[in-house]
């Protein structure tokens, strides 16, 4: 994909997460891009550079769907939802365990942040559950808080 236009800053991190999961978990990568596509269309699909970018993203999604064709996570929403939700929760749990053990490092910050992005992605399947809304809020806040503490040389509480 070409670099995303400025208007698509809100989906930049979801697109990066897709790229990072291309090999590790293509289903997660697919739904991150689908989320980016749906959100991107809401942000701006008229401006030529945005439209061009969305067409490229759509091309990529269609290719991925073909490649993943017989995967039930792609063909059935309920399975896809469970797959992304489990993955997000695993990320969240890993970061939370590290946090509670007082082990603060870049990897756990990234896991909190990625979990929060994946809870965004879950909205492609419908409204989030109250629990997922809370996890997303907590993960986003924790990632920012611990990041700032480490940057300022402070110990997170």
């Amino acid at each position: 994909l070409p670099p995303a236009p400025q208007q698509f800053k809100p989906i930049q991190h979801h697109l990066r997460t897709a790229q990072e999961h291309e090999k590790r978990d293509p289903v997660v990568a697919y739904f991150c891009r689908l989320y980016a596509m749906q959100t991107g269309m809401k942000i701006d699909s008229k401006t030529p550079e945005c439209h061009k970018f969305l067409v490229k993203l759509m091309d990529q999604l269609e290719i991925m769907k073909k490649q993943l064709g017989d995967n039930e996570s792609i063909t059935q929403d309920v399975v896809g939802n469970a797959h992304v939700e489990n993955y997000a929760y695993k990320m969240f749990l890993y970061a939370d365990t590290e946090d509670r053990a007082g082990r603060f490092h870049k990897n756990m910050i990234k896991s909190f942040y990625t979990a929060s992005l994946l809870y965004d992605v879950l909205t492609v399947f419908g409204e989030l559950t109250e629990e997922n809304i809370q996890h997303r809020k907590y993960a986003k806040w924790k990632a920012a808080y611990i990041h700032n503490c480490l940057k300022n040389g402070e110990t997170p509480q």
């Binding site: 269309m41 008229k46 439209h51 759509m58 999604l61 769907k65 063909t75 059935q76 929403d77």
Partner: peptide, 27 residues
Amino acid sequence: MGSVGSSVASAEQDELSQRLSRLRDQV
């Protein structure tokens, strides 16, 4: 000319929406 431009843009958007619907079609 403005109206031709806007109809082209709207047709392009429709095409993108249709492709998105096809993508979301459950088997």
